[in-house]
């Protein structure tokens, strides 16, 4: 089985702090990491490989420094790594990104399963997975929380997380899946994997290597334009109650009722 996992390198927002005076992000020393949701996609891809045999290829689009993210994926069990990197790809919105990644997947002559995280923690859109599927003409399933099985006829059964439960779906491969955290617990890189990651050959493809319409990539392939970026207003200092529990609770509830907040308070005084 051929598995492609699409990953994104993102700033590690875990370490992002807000400067209390300027109310702006403090970005000094913010490291780049593999998008956390993609870590689950990598792990799931490697588990599929271990269960059903095959290869796992990691694919990413971005500037040259994304190499470190792809190498890290090798230490986690990925076999082959490809980077789509070209100044012409810069500025891509989700439409252009999906188009470009799909072209990369086509260059790899497709896959049985394409996996990625449900969204990236910088953009938080979750739009690239379905977009890649559309460009490849494949079905997609988002928010997969479990891959139950792949049967002998090439049908995959998955559980997809919804707001009020989950739905079990059966799809004929090839298909594109995006995964949530619940799907697995990613392993730590092995020593052998780390060694392999260092020596692994990474293939870089530019726009010229892909079968694409140059108009449809990067900024020129992006219908959406960011016109303004701002920091959300800082929350005003709240009202903090301290003291005897019975009093603090009662003061809080009084305050809420005074503020017109619909908390029903029962019979007592």
């Amino acid at each position: 089985m051929k598995i492609i996992v699409c990953i994104k390198q993102v700033p590690d927002t875990t370490n992002v702090k807000i400067n209390p005076e300027t109310n702006t992000l403090v970005r000094e020393g913010v490291e780049s990491i593999i998008n956390p949701f993609d870590m689950y996609a990598i792990e799931e891809a490697v588990r599929l490989k271990e269960k059903y045999e095959g290869t796992v290829t990691a694919l990413s689009m971005g500037p040259p420094q994304v190499e470190s993210a792809l190498r890290e994926s090798v230490s986690l069990g990925v076999d082959e790594i490809y980077l789509l990197s070209d100044r012409a790809f810069a500025g891509a919105d989700t439409l252009a990104t999906a188009y470009t990644l799909a072209a990369g997947i086509n260059n790899l002559e497709g896959a049985d399963v394409v996996l990625m995280g449900k969204q990236a923690i910088d953009g938080d859109t979750g739009q690239v997975g379905p977009g890649v599927a559309e460009n490849l003409g494949l079905p997609h399933i988002t928010d997969v929380r479990k891959i139950e099985e792949i049967d002998g006829n090439g049908y995959m059964t998955v559980q997809r997380l919804l707001e009020d439960g989950y739905v079990r779906l059966k799809v004929k491969l090839p298909a594109v899946l995006t995964v949530v955290k619940e799907i697995n617990e990613p392993r730590m890189p092995s020593l052998k994997g780390k060694m392999r990651a260092k020596s692994k050959e990474m293939k870089v493809w530019t726009a010229a290597d892909l079968d694409i319409d140059k108009e449809r990539i990067g900024l020129s392939g992006s219908p959406t334009w960011v016109t303004k970026i701002f920091t959300p207003p800082k929350p005003k200092g709240g009202k903090i109650f301290q003291g005897e529990t019975r009093d603090t609770v009662s003061e809080l509830l009084d305050e809420l009722v005074k503020g017109g907040i619909p908390i029903k308070r029962g019979g007592g005084k």
């Binding site: 992002v16 807000i18 938080d124 303004k228 701002f230 920091t231």
Partner: peptide, 9 residues
């Protein structure tokens, strides 16, 4: 960015 910035598009 996890709600740390707002963007108008």
């Amino acid at each position: 960015f996890g709600g740390n910035i707002m963007a108008t598009i």
